[in-house]
Nucleic acid binder design. Structure first.
Length: 578
DNA sequence: GCCGTTTTCGGCCCGACTGTTTTCAGTCG
């Protein structure tokens, strides 16, 4: 967790420096933040092993930043950062989280109007105080207000991808206590919702007091809301609230069912219990005052005439009726994915070489990996042109023949595919010539510009791309960024119809801030018979693990193995491409 | 502030879009 804390601080320093119009240094801090965010080894351990010198070995970390990491490890603070914040005492991170606001504008608003936080900003905008300022017009006023409203709608919720590492760490520590007999996360985390309000953990223990003592003194606890024998509530760093409940072993299953929710799912299951003359609550299933079952979820569901329902499906969207009929779809499993086809390498935006990415994919047990680097329209990502794609093909061929000569069966079977993530331009054409596209194993197309088009035009734009006989996959099809940007205006039904006709595959992007397609669209796609692929959009080998969140989203959308093309073997996968 | 088959200084961070500025600055990917 300390790596992520430092990453956040370095990002923030980068913003402050940008505000002060310092050249290049913001980029250096940004880079350090990026690297730390995905670094496998804890910086504390690196420091313990080799001091500042070892820290300097981390790419993007030089002497200065290494010393700052050391300072943070020793004191929990970075003086340089404190100084920057004191100099311009505003909630910069909050203010620039408003779409369209950046460090420069934040500085002007602070200097001219004394705006320090979102509240000040909202007040000033509503009083039309910013329009008279140089560089701020009516549209800016409107955009800022919209941005603030967007943030407000999503306040207090965290991305599942940000919460999960914290949850895993806490559960890992509690599991190691010999007093803990059973433990599981419940609530929206267990249902793998894309955003999370707070974390609920359930446990069974013979010594609740000891477990609670341990819980409230975990590292990273900033506040103890309450501490009791059966329930304690804490706030962790980054304002994440965590509840721990100790329940009795005989009620563990019903408690888990009750606290996993969703509320709507529980209302319906309780009604079903009532219809059968039973009562269902967090302590068990009761007939009169006699408890029938409660130890496991499976027997709880069975007692009210249902088969066990995967947590991701528990939203009362029809799953209960299917469970009653024994007709629940067999949704895709977390182990079903055989390869990842949306990955970037150091040929442009990524951090790792094709070889490193391939080795990481092999470690995950994959059979294949697709490299799909950005193409030339995206200059910042150093997008590849036709000639560079040909060169990249040579490298991939070389790596593949090297894998084939290896003795281990699994490795010899492994294959790297060459794709590309081309850009769908304003008119629906793409930025790479057809002859070059034909030479690739598959082609992903995505929108990375002009996102504010009218609904009809945007839909037409995507449809034209899907009709291109070389384009196989549409990446992040709706363009949303959770809590940051709405999806673009599209007629999704029309897109599904065209995808089906042109045999174009829609991506489920696993990045925690995207999850695009989202669950409800996945279900629609499945019902329309449109094939999907779960990809990570990795820019670093460690991102490959994010596949978990894409699979979770697919499960929430009831997708089965047959709906997801990269649950298939390489031979079968290749048949899906045009 | 980092980095180095161009090694201890000089380069890195580009181009489109937006809003508003009549010639460009800030934001975003």
């Amino acid at each position: 967790m300390i790596n992520q804390e430092l990453a956040k601080i370095f990002y923030s320093i980068s913003s402050y420096l940008e505000m002060e119009e310092v050249a290049f240094r913001p980029y250096a801090y940004q880079k350090a933040g990026l690297v730390l965010e995905v670094l496998e080894e804890n910086v504390e351990e690196i420091y313990k092993r080799g001091g500042v010198k070892a820290l300097e070995k981390i790419p993007g970390v030089g002497k200065n930043i290494a010393l700052k990491i050391e300072e943070y490890i020793k004191t929990g603070k970075i003086k340089y950062y404190e100084k920057l914040r004191k100099k311009t005492p505003i909630d910069l991170e909050d203010i620039i989280s408003v779409e369209g606001m950046g460090p420069r504008k934040a500085k002007i608003l602070y200097q001219k109007l004394g705006i320090k936080n979102l509240k000040d900003l909202e007040k000033a905008v509503k009083a039309h105080k910013i329009t008279p300022l140089f560089g701020f017009g009516e549209k800016t006023e409107k955009n800022i207000l919209e941005g603030i409203n967007f943030l407000k709608r999503n306040k207090g919720r965290f991305l599942l991808g940000d919460i999960m590492p914290v949850v895993k760490e806490i559960i890992g520590k509690l599991e190691n206590l010999k007093e803990v007999r059973k433990i599981s996360v419940a609530g929206s985390v267990r249902r793998m919702k894309e955003t999370i309000g707070d974390v609920d953990i359930l446990t069974v223990s013979r010594n609740p007091t000891k477990v609670m003592d341990f819980f409230v003194s975990l590292p990273g606890v900033v506040k103890v809301w309450s501490k009791g024998g059966t329930r304690s509530s804490i706030r962790m760093k980054d304002d994440i609230d965590v509840d721990l409940r100790v329940v009795s072993e005989k009620s563990y299953g019903s408690a888990l069912q009750y606290f996993t929710g969703s509320k709507e799912h529980n209302i319906t299951t309780r009604r079903i219990a009532m219809d059968r003359g039973l009562k269902l609550n967090e302590y068990g299933v009761f007939k009169g005052s006699k408890m029938i079952v409660g130890k496991t979820e499976k027997e709880v569901y069975k007692a009210i005439g249902l088969v066990w329902i995967p947590p991701e499906m528990r939203e009362d969207e029809g799953e209960i009726e299917l469970a009653r009929q024994g007709k629940l779809p067999k949704i895709i499993d977390y182990n079903d994915i055989k390869g990842d086809l949306h990955c970037h390498s150091d040929w442009n935006g990524g951090d790792n070489s094709i070889k490193e990415m391939a080795e990481a994919a092999q470690e995950m047990g994959y059979d294949y990996l697709g490299i799909s680097d950005h193409t030339k329209f995206l200059r910042i990502e150093n997008g590849l042109n036709e000639k560079q794609l040909t060169q990249q093909r040579k490298e991939i061929d070389k790596l593949n023949s090297r894998f084939h000569s290896l003795s281990s069966n699994k490795q010899a079977k492994f294959r790297i595919l060459q794709g590309a993530e081309v850009n769908i331009l304003k008119d629906g054409s793409v930025d790479i010539k057809d002859e070059a596209l034909k030479k690739l194993d598959y082609v992903i197309a995505g929108i990375h510009s002009n996102m504010k088009m009218e609904k009809e035009k945007m839909t037409e734009r995507i449809i034209r791309a899907m009709r291109n006989p070389n384009i196989d996959i549409i990446s992040h099809p709706t363009g949303r960024l959770i809590q940051r940007r709405d999806e673009y205006l599209i007629d999704f039904d029309k897109i599904l119809k065209e995808a089906k006709e042109t045999k174009t595959i829609l991506e489920i992007n696993s990045f925690p801030g995207r999850l695009d397609l989202k669950d409800t669209y996945i279900r629609k796609a499945k019902e329309a018979g449109v094939k999907m692929i779960i990809n990570t959009d990795s820019h670093h080998k460690n991102h490959l693990r994010l596949i978990e969140f894409g699979i979770a989203q697919a499960r929430r959308g009831w997708a089965e193995k047959k709906d997801i093309i990269n649950s298939q073997s390489l031979d079968k996968l290749l048949k899906f491409f045009k």
